[in-house]
Every structure is written in structure tokens, then in C-alpha cells.
Simulated scan of single mutants.
Amino acid sequence: MVDEFDFFRKVRAYYNNVPFLVQFTYRLSHRVDKAVTARGSFSCRVNPHTQIVEYVIDLRSDSISRPYSEHSSFLFSSLYDEIPAQSIELNQFLIQALRYPLPIEYDWQAFVMSGAEDAVNMQTIQQLFKKWRFKSKDEQPVDGKLKVGQVLLQWQL
């Protein structure tokens, strides 16, 4: 059994800036996707007043750019707006909040690690990327057609 203050202290110490890697693609032109990598880390915060563990991520991708391209065929026409060099950046983004039960008579590390694997995975990162829009030269939002291929948590406990 762990008391709540000890739980708070250990979660902050052990689960601060845990690195992860995201491999994804973006649409470069008609049927051509380009692979990119993003490096991130997640940290856990504990709010003892509400009994919630919060998972917060920081993420920065490699530079992404795309020239203007247009593809026409007999059946369809595809237009891809230019994306000037930029990267995806998320800072202190709250991705999940879990209520932890009291008293803490369970394996709290397994609880936190399970929550992290639920928070930082292909589906949740893909949902974040669906909302992400790059900016064109004239500051208009551009969809890069991002598709997450793999998310790797790097546990070092």
C-alpha cells in the first residue's frame, strides 16, 4: 500500500519526460506519401484534490514541406496546395486524464503505464493529427493528409 503523497511524489519522479517516437506520412503529391518522424515526451501530473492523473505531451516533428502540385486524369483531378517548411509542435498538450482510486492498494506503476499506453498510441496521435492544419504562404489552413504509421514509447524504468 502506498499513501497518496508518496504516490504523487513517485509519479512525478518516474513519469516525467518519458520519450516516445511517432513515425507518420504526409501527402506529397498524387499517390505519393513522404515519411516523417516526430519526437515527443509525456509527463504525468497528479491532482490530489480531484484524484486525477493527467497525461501531458510535448511533440515536435521534422520539417515538412510540399510544393504546389496538380494531377489530372480522365476520372479525377487532384490539387495539393503548397506547404512552406514547417513542423508540427504540441506543447504541454493534455491528452488524457484518469481518476485514480483510493486507497492505493494496487500496482500503481501498472496503472500509470497502462494509462500512458492508452493515451499515447496510434489512434490518439492520429486523432490529434486529423485536427492539425499546416499554414500556406498566405496563412490559409492546408490539410497535409497525415497518417500515423507507428508510435513507440521508450520506457526506461
Rank of each mutant, 00 (worst) to 15 (best):
M1T: 15
V2E: 02
F5Y: 13
D6A: 15
D6G: 13
R9F: 07
R9W: 06
V11L: 01
V11F: 01
V11H: 02
R12Y: 07
A13R: 14
A13S: 13
A13Q: 15
A13W: 15
Y14V: 14
Y15F: 14
Y15I: 06
N16S: 09
V18M: 04
V22N: 02
F24R: 06
Y26M: 08
H30Y: 01
R31D: 06
R31T: 06
R31Y: 01
D33Q: 02
D33F: 00
K34H: 10
K34M: 14
K34W: 07
A35F: 11
A35W: 11
R45F: 06
R45W: 05
R45C: 07
N47W: 05
N47Y: 04
P48A: 07
H49A: 15
Q51N: 13
Q51Y: 08
V53D: 01
E54A: 12
V56N: 05
V56F: 05
S61T: 08
S63P: 04
S63H: 05
S65I: 03
S65Y: 05
R66A: 04
S69R: 00
S69H: 06
S69T: 04
S69P: 00
E70C: 08
H71P: 00
H71F: 11
H71V: 00
H71W: 04
S72D: 09
F74S: 06
F74N: 02
F76L: 01
S77F: 12
S77C: 15
S77V: 12
S78D: 02
S78F: 01
Y80N: 08
Y80C: 03
I83P: 02
I83G: 01
S87P: 05
I88M: 04
E89H: 10
N91Q: 14
N91L: 08
F93D: 06
L94R: 11
L94N: 12
I95C: 10
I95P: 01
Q96N: 13
Q96S: 14
A97I: 09
A97S: 11
L98F: 13
L98H: 14
R99E: 13
R99G: 13
R99T: 13
P101R: 12
P101Y: 09
P101S: 13
L102R: 12
L102G: 07
L102S: 10
I104D: 07
E105C: 11
D107I: 10
D107E: 08
W108V: 06
W108S: 10
A110R: 14
M113Q: 15
S114Y: 08
S114K: 15
G115P: 10
A116E: 00
D118C: 07
D118L: 09
A119T: 03
A119S: 09
V120F: 02
V120D: 02
V120Y: 01
M122D: 14
M122R: 15
Q123D: 11
Q126S: 06
Q127H: 10
Q127L: 09
Q127N: 05
F129Q: 10
K135E: 15
S136H: 00
K137Q: 13
K137T: 14
D138V: 10
P141I: 05
D143N: 14
D143H: 04
G144A: 08
K147M: 05
G149Q: 04
G149D: 03
Q150N: 14
Q154M: 11
Q154D: 02
W155A: 08
L157V: 07
